[in-house]
Computed example of a mutant assay.
Amino acid sequence: MSVSRIARRIASPKKALTAAALAAATTGLVLTSAPAQAATSSAPSSAASAKAIAHKMIPDAAQYNAFSKIVEHESGWNVTATNASSGAYGLVQALPGSKMASAGADWKTNPATQIEWGLDYMNSRYGSPVAAWNFWQANGWY
Rank of each mutant, 00 (worst) to 15 (best):
residue 36 A to Y: 07
residue 55 H to C: 08
residue 12 S to R: 12
residue 105 A to N: 15
residue 83 N to D: 12
residue 119 L to S: 00
residue 10 I to Q: 06
residue 9 R to G: 15
residue 9 R to Q: 15
residue 54 A to W: 09
residue 119 L to W: 07
residue 53 I to M: 09
residue 15 K to W: 13
residue 55 H to L: 13
residue 75 S to C: 05
residue 56 K to G: 14
residue 41 S to E: 14
residue 49 S to I: 12
residue 18 T to K: 08
residue 25 A to F: 09
residue 78 N to Q: 11
residue 38 A to F: 07
residue 109 T to G: 05
residue 49 S to V: 08
residue 79 V to S: 02
residue 133 W to L: 08
residue 15 K to R: 14
residue 127 G to S: 02
residue 21 A to Y: 12
residue 16 A to Q: 03
residue 97 G to D: 03
residue 60 D to K: 14
residue 75 S to W: 01
residue 63 Q to F: 03
residue 97 G to K: 04
residue 141 W to Y: 10
residue 61 A to F: 11
residue 103 A to L: 05
residue 12 S to T: 10
residue 32 T to L: 13
residue 93 Q to G: 04
residue 79 V to D: 02
residue 124 S to H: 07
residue 60 D to P: 03
residue 77 W to R: 05
residue 122 M to T: 06
residue 115 I to F: 01
residue 125 R to E: 05
residue 84 A to Q: 10
residue 33 S to P: 01
residue 46 S to W: 15
residue 74 E to S: 04
residue 66 A to W: 06
residue 102 S to D: 08
residue 17 L to N: 10
residue 81 A to C: 01
residue 113 T to A: 08
residue 67 F to Y: 03
residue 104 G to F: 02
residue 40 T to R: 14
residue 10 I to H: 12
residue 136 W to H: 12
residue 26 T to S: 12
residue 67 F to N: 01
residue 117 W to Y: 09
residue 108 K to L: 07
residue 119 L to T: 08
residue 142 Y to K: 07
residue 7 A to K: 13
residue 63 Q to V: 06
residue 77 W to A: 05
residue 138 A to Q: 14
residue 92 V to D: 00
residue 105 A to I: 04
residue 130 V to M: 08
residue 16 A to Y: 02
residue 129 P to Y: 05
residue 72 E to P: 00
residue 70 I to R: 00
residue 107 W to M: 09
residue 125 R to W: 04
residue 129 P to E: 03
residue 25 A to V: 11
residue 32 T to N: 10
residue 54 A to K: 07
residue 48 A to I: 11
residue 41 S to D: 14
residue 52 A to L: 10
residue 12 S to M: 02
residue 80 T to D: 10
residue 43 A to P: 04
